[in-house]
Nucleic acid binder design. Structure first.
Length: 111
DNA sequence: GCGGTGACGGTCG
DNA sequence: CCGACCGCCACCG
């Protein structure tokens, strides 16, 4: 998992990113995790940005369920190319409910 | 090896 | 509820 992206996209073939990806990969279908939770589970309790950065580096078409990672409070972070729309669509497709434009973490949050 | 940077987040006004 | 301000960390040039 991982690929180069245009510009200043980070690219690492082991360690930190892989740990982030490993965590994201085990988010069950129909459930979501916040960037902070993902980072924490990967061993970086105070580096939510790291999770964001790692996901940002994902190549298009990755098999990783990146759409299950949302911002604090269940918000969808604006993504390039309005990718947030795709994310919402995918989540809805797996039965994730939204409340006032945000994922209902009470029902779909990680535990 | 230094410095800028980025799909974040909690706090404060 | 919204915007601004740090803090945090690995990655790239």
């Amino acid at each position: 998992v991982n690929a180069r992206t245009p510009g200043a996209l980070p690219l690492r073939s082991s360690t930190a990113y892989d740990r982030i990806y490993a965590v994201v990969r085990r988010i069950p279908r129909g459930r979501v995790a916040t960037y902070g939770e993902v980072a924490a589970k990967a061993g970086f309790p105070h580096a939510p940005r790291l999770a964001g950065y790692a996901l940002y580096a994902l190549p298009p078409g990755t098999s990783l369920p990146w759409h299950r990672v949302v911002g604090a409070g269940g918000r969808l972070s604006p993504r390039a190319g309005g990718g947030e729309v795709v994310q919402r669509r995918r989540l809805l497709a797996e039965g994730v409910a939204f409340r006032a434009g945000r994922v209902d973490l009470r029902r779909h949050g990680l535990r």
